[in-house]
Design a protein around this nucleic acid. Structure first.
Lengths: 212, 212
DNA sequence: TAGATTGTTAATCGATTAACAATC
DNA sequence: TAGATTGTTAATCGATTAACAATC
């Protein structure tokens, strides 16, 4: 933790993984775990686990370790899993539909409330139990429902323009799947870019550099 | 670069992004670029760019900068974009279908050759121009075609078992979308885990911690 | 040549790991 | 109490940034 109390991005990015492993332990009815045991499970050091957790407070107990379900609940609270951030998804192509139907938004603090697509032929089609709406309804929807999270599954060329418009309409958080590095000039907006192409290319590098 | 000549993961993970930005510059007919100009575009430091590129060799020219298309070609070669790694995809649910049809494998050194799914009802259905095959054909396919990359879009519970089997069948690289941290005990195998749920949760943390 | 910009070394910064006193 | 394990400080390691001589 830096002196101003803010948590470094490296720590934050590990939290969902802690949360996931603790969930599995809870499912297996494990009640307590030490940083050493957890470190073996997650393949990191016990030191790092203790450092990470202590950014947020003393969740453990000397001589005992950590209470699994308690710790999980605390991390969940930090992440915001109990929130119900209203969420919209733009772009109902293959990927958009897959994200809409495959991801459990609720368990991650978000509620997917609407899906939009520029192609009028898709209007009325449903994904899960949500109808696909035309993009010209985005504005009215945002004014009425005030969503704060937007999932972007749209082509590169359209991304920045739509994102800027969405910021004006009150969107505060972007989950961006487009082949474009979204960055927002406004303060107080968060962006999570997912570049699947870059991820595959990293794998290709790995495959290309295996020792024979 | 460390003394043994190996490149750190932090550098590798930036390469696809360099490659992407250089591609866009090439499309815009930009011939040369300095580390300073590129740093402004990509929002990193010029120092870092020069350090990163020099892990692989002197691609620039003093007083001039870097030749865009030449540099892109070099990075592409390092990544392996000109390879044709034979690739199979397991799990033709929403996400598997979306990955199969949405991702350009060829431009990233991979050729998607087959799609498998455990559900016999999907057998024969096509995704793009590939038929979905039953999983019991995986073994024969691997013995015949010797694929090296596997994309896993299967449930958590099945992942480790299938991955172990695939390793025996000669798969060397895994692009894993399952809700499971795949790690392979064998040497000389590379894994790229994509945890979309963790990514959304990181965004939720961000949304949850915006200053009001 | 003079100006620009790299390649590369040195300095800084931050993240990870180790160590151990505190304490359950 | 004795043993275990945390919380936390200090040491190490690696990554990023700054600086500048080399050179196109």
């Amino acid at each position: 933790m830096s002196k101003d109390g803010s948590i470094s991005a490296s720590v934050i990015k590990r939290l969902p993984r802690y949360y996931r492993f603790l969930g599995e332990l809870e499912n297996k009815k494990v009640e307590r775990i030490s940083s050493r045991e957890l470190s073996e499970l997650m393949k990191l050091t016990a030191s790092q686990i203790r450092q990470d957790l202590n950014c947020f407070g003393g969740f453990g107990q000397q001589g005992y370790g950590y209470h699994v379900s308690e710790l999980r609940k605390e991390i969940g609270k930090i992440l915001g899993v109990d929130k119900r951030f209203r969420t919209i998804l733009i772009g109902a192509g293959n990927l958009g539909k897959a994200i809409a139907s495959h991801i459990n938004f609720e368990s991650r603090g978000c509620v997917l409330e609407a899906i939009f697509d520029a192609n009028p032929k898709l209007t009325g089609e449903t994904v899960g139990d949500l109808p696909i709406r035309p993009t010209d309804e985005i504005e009215r929807f945002c004014l009425e429902r005030k969503p704060v999270v937007a999932v972007l599954c749209i082509p590169k060329a359209a991304t920045q323009e739509i994102a800027d418009k969405l910021v004006e309409l009150g969107i505060k958080a972007f989950w961006n799947f487009s082949h474009y590095d979204l960055s927002i000039d406004h303060d107080n907006i968060v962006v999570e870019n997912v570049h699947l192409g870059d991820s595959l290319l990293t794998l290709t590098y790995g495959a290309n550099n295996l020792t024979e």
